[in-house]
Design a protein around this nucleic acid. Structure first.
Length: 533
RNA sequence: CGGGGAGUAGCGCAGUCUGGUAGCGCAUCUGGUUUGGGACCAGAGGGUCGCAAGUUCGAAUCUUGUCUCCCCGACCA
């Protein structure tokens, strides 16, 4: 039953990544050529962009801060959407769609909210063009400018105010898949773009308890999704007040660690209290017949997760796409030497494709691509490796004779190609995908664990870790500092010079009293300090 | 938005100082030789030098404006 090509032990995750910071004295031995240049260690920021390009997920569009999401990237997003959407439905939410444009006056109703977004809003002020000597200029000024939604609390809340009359109308649980625009100062492809795709859930509840429960349940949906589907271990916790969503009472987050040790907020869930219901008049008659303001929540997860996949799972040969979200989980590359072979090889490939598609992984039929393009097999193979297809299967005339297939596992390039009996492969393929999914998670988790330091107790320790003299190179091994913080917001000013922020107050707390790493004051809560994207 | 750097063929670059009508490597196409591995040889195609205006007989090159990208900051669901 056990296919012979499954590796039983996991190779050392970090074997090609020195933890020491001895500068490049090593005389580059005959190392295998990597598909991505520069490597992570050479220039992490540039490596990231090269992986995005090489994996063909997305590219810049020429429109400031806006990207084109290409089929491989969008295909991954579609898989994410499908999985998340199922989870939302299972937790009782329905999908809706609200307008892209929000009247400016709506925003003025919630002071904190507008202040939080004012500096990054695209505003539509005209509704037609006129031609002046062939030059088109805006004309027909609007009575009231329209904001392109940066998020939809105001427009959805306004609708909720109309829909909700009675406690019997609650809870109101809706979600929308949409694009939003935030005029970011410094865009970074997939991670921070002016326009991005996301889902935003918006709910209204009768009580604090109900709304808080919803907030936490949805954060846990994100956590489970990140870990199970994206193979991305995350730290769930609450944001400190200064990092809260504008207008929220509590903001919760899942924080992921990238391979350079920086943090990425991967999803958030907000308890909005009665702030928005009071601003927008979302009122209902309670069980005693008394008018009350509803408690609302919102939660979102975006195409930024595509960037997170790149930064968390890629290596120097490109992306490694988790099988659960890979648009194609198995790619068949026919190896044809001449026209005589061709038909036989293609027929054999077609049959294997059909047999593979009859297999089931994670509750769904396998997604199998037969790459029949008229280009060299070796080129196709490397293309799929750079995209991170979990399994690449090469099949040539010789394989047909032996009844075999040649398999490359994307997470095990070091083990090379495995020649396996065709039927064994088909029987084992679902297990292989599960194994790859697990490997990606295990490696990311092992990495995260080695990069969370808990022995930083004083500001001097902190300085040594994050300060100017600390090694913040890729090989330097910086990551998250988990330490006590007093909760004194004034102390956050100390962080400015380090470029570090508190990412979250993790849910799992030891409850011990210690001293604040920043001020030395008594402190009980553990927080995560890190540089962030 | 502040400081720095950069936009020349799909990608990576040279040429810009000292204006004379565009080149290299990879990729692409064609032919041939190869072939279980990111091949080799020969030939070919592809660029209004980011965009716009100006100076000039002549602008990739000089001037001004503008757009975009990268790095560092600030800002930031």
């Amino acid at each position: 039953m056990l296919p012979k090509f499954v590796l039983l032990s996991s190779p050392q995750f970090d074997k090609e990544r020195p933890m020491t910071n001895t500068p490049a004295a090593q005389p580059k031995p005959q190392t295998a050529k990597t598909a991505i240049a520069p490597t992570r260690a050479e220039n992490y920021a540039e490596w990231y962009q090269q992986v995005v390009r090489a994996s063909d997920m997305a590219e810049l569009s020429g429109v400031r801060g806006c990207m084109i999401i290409k089929p491989w990237g969008y295909g991954i997003w579609e898989q994410m959407q499908r999985d998340l959407d199922r989870r939302f439905k299972e937790t009782g939410h329905d999908n809706c769609y609200f307008p892209l444009f929000i009247p400016l006056s709506y925003f003025q109703k919630e002071a904190d909210h507008v202040e939080g977004f004012a500096k990054e809003m695209a505003v539509v002020t005209h509704h037609r063009l006129k031609s002046d000597d062939g030059k088109l200029t805006p004309d027909g000024e609007l009575e009231e400018p329209l904001v392109v939604r940066p998020t939809s609390e105001m427009v959805i809340g306004t609708a909720m105010a109309k829909w909700i009359k009675s406690y019997r109308d609650l809870p109101l649980l809706i979600n929308q898949w949409a694009n939003v625009v935030r005029w970011e100062m410094r865009p970074r492809i997939l991670l921070r773009t002016a326009e991005f795709l996301w889902q935003e859930g918006h709910t209204a509840h009768e009580t604090y308890d109900d709304a808080m429960k919803e907030t936490r349940v949805m954060l846990d949906v994100y956590r489970d999704f990140a870990e199970q589907v994206l193979a991305l271990p995350v730290i769930p916790g609450e944001k400190t007040p200064n990092e809260r969503f504008p207008g929220a009472v509590n903001t919760y987050t899942i924080e992921a660690m990238m391979q350079d040790g920086r943090a990425l907020q991967a999803g958030t869930s907000h308890y909005l209290g009665q702030n928005f219901s009071k601003s927008l008049n979302i009122q209902f008659q309670n069980r005693e017949g008394v008018l009350e303001f509803a408690h609302t929540t919102s939660w979102g997860l975006s195409t930024r997760m595509l960037g997170a996949l790149v930064m968390a799972h890629s290596d120097d040969n490109g992306l490694r796409t988790p099988p659960r979200v890979a648009p194609w989980q198995v790619v068949i590359v026919p190896i044809t030497r001449n026209d005589a072979d061709k038909q036989a090889v293609m027929d054999y490939c077609q049959k294997i494709k059909a047999d593979l598609q009859a297999q089931v992984y994670a509750g769904q039929p396998l997604r199998v691509k037969l790459d029949a393009r008229d280009i060299a097999g070796a080129d196709k193979r490397w293309e799929w490796i750079k995209k991170g297809a979990p399994l690449v299967v090469e099949i040539g005339a010789r394989d047909i004779e032996g009844g075999k297939v040649c398999v490359t596992r994307r997470d095990r390039l070091d083990q090379g190609k495995q020649f396996v009996l065709r039927d064994d492969f088909i029987a084992a393929v679902a297990g292989e995908l599960a194994s790859i999914q697990q490997t990606l998670f295990d490696e990311a988790l092992a990495f995260q664990k080695t990069r969370i330091v808990t022995n930083i107790k004083t500001l001097a320790d902190f300085e040594a870790y994050f300060g100017k003299d600390a090694d913040n190179s890729f090989a330097g091994g910086q990551g998250f500092v988990r330490a006590k913080w007093s909760g004194d917001e004034a102390s956050l000013g100390i962080l400015d010079k380090y470029g570090v922020t508190i990412r979250c107050v993790p849910f799992d707390q030891d409850g011990q009293t210690g001293t604040c790493v920043l001020t030395g004051a008594p402190a009980t809560q553990d927080v995560i300090f890190a540089r962030a994207y």
